[in-house]
Design a protein around this nucleic acid. Structure first.
Lengths: 201, 201
DNA sequence: CGACTGACCAGAATAGTAGTCTGGTCAGTC
DNA sequence: GACTGACCAGACTACTATTCTGGTCAGTCG
């Protein structure tokens, strides 16, 4: 809870909602609980959000903001695009290994959230992460560490799928060294595939 | 149904079980149904299999045998290992797009099977497909179209995850061109990553 | 008068219970 | 000795009563 959050009813609701959703999941969190924790009336929730779903999506968006902010820092580091890709995938694994709210809505393997709202949240996450990867590729092309022959949006979509598969597999495995090893291999294969190649730029 | 299947009770049971599992799924297929369709008594099922699960796993194993046989033909074709990898991934997508029994137990997105038996079936499939990929890589190294610096078992595990992610994503998308496009990109990235590189063998 | 509240309620969700189903077993039969 | 289908414990399903909750809005208050 940052000291820079303004004490508006909407902010208080978001803070309360996040705490509730993280602890009890979507289904077991009631609008009344959230309102009470935000020291407001139940009907007031609907002054700021159209539905319980919208409250949840706003919480997911905030959580994503934090993740994307960290990732943008990684993107700003010196090095080649394949290096940065590796770092972003690592950060993703680390972040999603800790953030149960994001993890749950994207993987659907806990009971924190399910159904339509989980799908909406998952799609939003995929969208934003793909955008991040696209940015990484475009920047890499601009600076000459990614082949000019690739199309950033479509390659970003594929990178998302394969990076995600490795992250997911790694988070499912109790042995932390396995994810490290898989990332090494992925970086080796894909990193090489991204680099400019003599006669191929 | 091949004409070479012998008319033993076990074979009849397997044929009946496969037909039932494919049509009704695991849960809604009863041992009695299978026995009746195989023109035998219900208790006779247990002369050949220990449990309903074992019947199911035997059916999965047979279905996998067919798939692996097709894939082995692809592996026997001339060309480089990356070419063959591409062909195997395509065959996998095509096969799993049609085989509801295998698809269901691996993806868990239909109601044909779920729970422990689905997990067992999925793990068996992953295992066999990883073995296939390992074979592809080892053969590629032996003939010089795959870098000697990679470790086939661990790279096969990563290739399985990323190939699977692309296949899954492609099968979920109504547009068949999307899978083709993703496979092109994957082949481009990973294929290049697999090839021997000057000074890197 | 506009912001806020909590009682209201339709429909969703849950809990409880009776009835049905089925995987596995084995005594009886051939 | 191989095979069978009746048996049965436990799983599953269907039904029904009860409870819960998202969204609404008339009433209240500043």
């Amino acid at each position: 809870m940052s000291a820079t959050v303004h004490d508006t009813p909407r902010d208080r609701l978001l803070v309360a909602a996040e705490a509730r959703f993280r602890r009890f999941g979507y289904k077991r969190t009631t609008i009344e609980d959230v309102a009470t924790e935000a020291a407001t009336g139940k009907g007031s929730v609907y002054l700021h959000f159209e539905s319980k779903q919208e409250v949840y999506m706003a919480v997911v968006e905030q959580s994503l903001d934090r993740f994307i902010e960290s990732a943008e820092h990684v993107l700003a580091q010196p090095g080649t695009a394949p290096d940065r890709l590796r770092a972003v995938v690592e950060l993703t694994a680390e972040h999603y290994g800790h953030d149960e709210l994001l993890h749950s809505s994207l993987f659907g393997e806990t009971d924190l959230v399910e159904g339509d709202v989980a799908r909406m949240a998952a799609e939003r996450q995929r969208q934003r992460i793909r955008n991040l990867l696209e940015e990484l590729l475009s920047t890499g092309q601009a600076e000459g560490t990614v082949r000019a022959s690739i199309d950033p949006p479509s390659v970003a979509a594929v990178l998302f799928e394969i990076g995600w598969a490795i992250v997911r597999s790694g988070l499912e495995n109790p042995d932390p060294d396995q994810l490290e090893s898989s990332l090494d291999i992925l970086n080796d294969l894909v990193g090489l595939g991204l680099l400019p190649r003599p006669g191929n730029s």
